[in-house]
Computed example of a mutant assay.
Amino acid sequence: MTKKGIVLVNLGSPDSTEVKDVRRYLDEFLMDERVIDKPYILRALLVKGIIVPFRAPKSAAAYKSIWWKEGSPLIVLSKQLQDAVQKNFDMPVEIAMRYGNPSPKVAYDKLLQQVPDLEEVIMLPLYPHYAMSSYETAVLYMKEVHKKYNYRFKLTTIEPYYKNTDYINALAESIKPYLQQDFDKILFSYHGVPERHIYKGDITKQHCLKVSDCCHVDSPAHNQCYRHQTFITTELVAAKLALPREKFEQTFQSRLGRDPWLTPYTAKRLEELPAEGVKKLLVACPAFVSDCLETLEEIAEEGKEIFLHAGGESFTMIPCLNTHPFWVNAVVKWIKEYAVETIDV
C-alpha cells in the first residue's frame, strides 16, 4: 500500500486575543484575493488602511469573549477532531489552517517526519460547500505550498460534501436532540458571500442569479455555486428530520462591506421573527463544522441578543458538528474510501 498521510484543513484563528495577533490574522485573511476580490492596490488600501486598523480591536474583544483556556475554540476543536480521526488509522493525521497556524508547511513536514517515504497526502477541507473564499482558497493554498517546497508526495483532495449522505446524517443527528424541546422555528444560518462571488463562480456565466429560481434549475454552475449547495444541504437535512416547511428557513450571516451579499441576512431575520410569532428559536450553522467566532460570538451572543431584544423568548444555538460521533465516522469513512481508491496496483 502506498505510504499515506492525512491533513484536515480549516480556516484558522489568531494566535491569541492580543490586538497585534488579531491584526496579523485579519491582514492575512482579508488580503486574500479570494476573500476581498479587488485589485491588489485597492485591496491593500481597504484592508491595511481602513478595515484592519478599525476592526482589529473590536475583533480582539470578540475573540476574548469566546476564547477557551486551551486556546482558540476553532483550533482546539480541530485538534480534537484530528485526535478522534487518528484513532482509526495507522496513517498520520495532521491539521493545517488556511490562515495563521499551524501552516500547511508545518503539517506537511510533520507528516514527513512520521513517514519519510511519504507518497500521498489525502486532504480534507473542513468546508462542506464550495466557495471561492473558503473551499477554493484553502485547496489552492495547500497546492501552492506543496508546489513551492517541491514536495514529492501526491496531493489528493476530497471534494465538497454538502449533499453527501454521511454529512447530512451527521448534521441531522446533531440537530435531532434539540427538536425535543418546544420551538417555533429552526433557522439554518450560513456564512454569507458577496453576490459577485456567485457570478464569478458561475462557469456558464449565464445561470447563477440570472435564471429564475436558479438554484433549483439544473446547471453545471451548481458544481461551484455556494448558494445552490447551501439550499440543498438545508433541504436534505430538513427532509431527514421530517421538518414541516413552516418550521425552518435559511439565512446568511457575517456580511462585510456595503456590496450586495446573499440574502436574507441572518441579523435582519433575527430582528423580524418575533413580530411574526416566532418566539422560541433554534439556530444551526451548517457551513461550519467547527464552532468558531462566527458561531460562538456572532450567533450565540450577538444573534441571541438581537432576537431577545426584539421580543423573542428563547434562543438556542445548536453546536457545530465538532467531534460528534456521526461526523467523526463520516470523516473516517471518506478517508478510507479515498485511501483505497488511490492505492497503486
Rank of each mutant, 00 (worst) to 15 (best):
K20V: 15
I122E: 04
A61C: 14
L293Q: 06
G277I: 10
T165K: 14
A172N: 12
K147N: 14
T156E: 02
D291G: 05
A62E: 08
E195K: 15
W68N: 13
A267Q: 12
C225F: 01
L8S: 03
A96K: 07
H197P: 02
Y99V: 00
G312Y: 03
Y130M: 02
T263L: 11
Y40G: 08
E144I: 06
D37N: 12
W67H: 01
V193Y: 00
L30K: 06
D21H: 02
A300I: 13
P53D: 06
T263N: 13
E136C: 10
A221H: 07
D32V: 02
K280A: 03
S133A: 13
A107K: 01
Q80P: 09
P102M: 04
P194I: 00
I41S: 11
G12D: 06
N10R: 03
H197E: 10
K48C: 09
V52E: 00
D213N: 13
L321F: 10
V217H: 10
L126Q: 09
H207A: 12
A267V: 12
F188G: 09
Y190P: 12
A310G: 05
N150W: 11
K69M: 02
E144W: 08
E297K: 04
A287V: 02
H197A: 01
T251W: 03
C320A: 13
Y63R: 07
C320V: 08
D90F: 14
R55G: 09
K304H: 05
S16F: 07
T316F: 03
M142G: 09
M31H: 08
V193E: 03
L42D: 10
I6L: 00
E341M: 15
P125C: 01
M132V: 13
P14I: 02
I158Q: 00
K48N: 14
L26G: 11
E70V: 05
L236K: 04
L282M: 07
I6W: 00
D83P: 03
D259T: 09
G100I: 01
A310W: 01
L26K: 12
L124Y: 00
A172E: 10
G49T: 06
Y141W: 11
G49W: 04
Y149G: 07
D21R: 02
P73A: 05
N223Y: 08
V106W: 09
P325Y: 07
G201T: 14
R98Y: 05
E271S: 15
A60N: 02
D184F: 02
P220N: 14
T295P: 11
P73G: 04
L30Y: 13
P194W: 03
E173M: 09
P104W: 07
V121P: 04
H191P: 07
L296M: 06
A61H: 14
V145D: 01
A339R: 05
H129V: 12
C225W: 02
E94S: 01
T342A: 09
P319Y: 11
A61Q: 15
A170Y: 01
L256I: 10
E159N: 13
N88A: 14
I168Q: 05
H216T: 15
F89D: 07
L270C: 00
L155M: 08
V115M: 02
P14N: 00
Y151D: 00
T342D: 08
F153R: 04
A107Q: 04
G312H: 05
L126I: 13
P194A: 04
G5T: 06
Q206G: 15
Q224S: 15
V331A: 10
V193N: 04
E246M: 13
E271V: 06
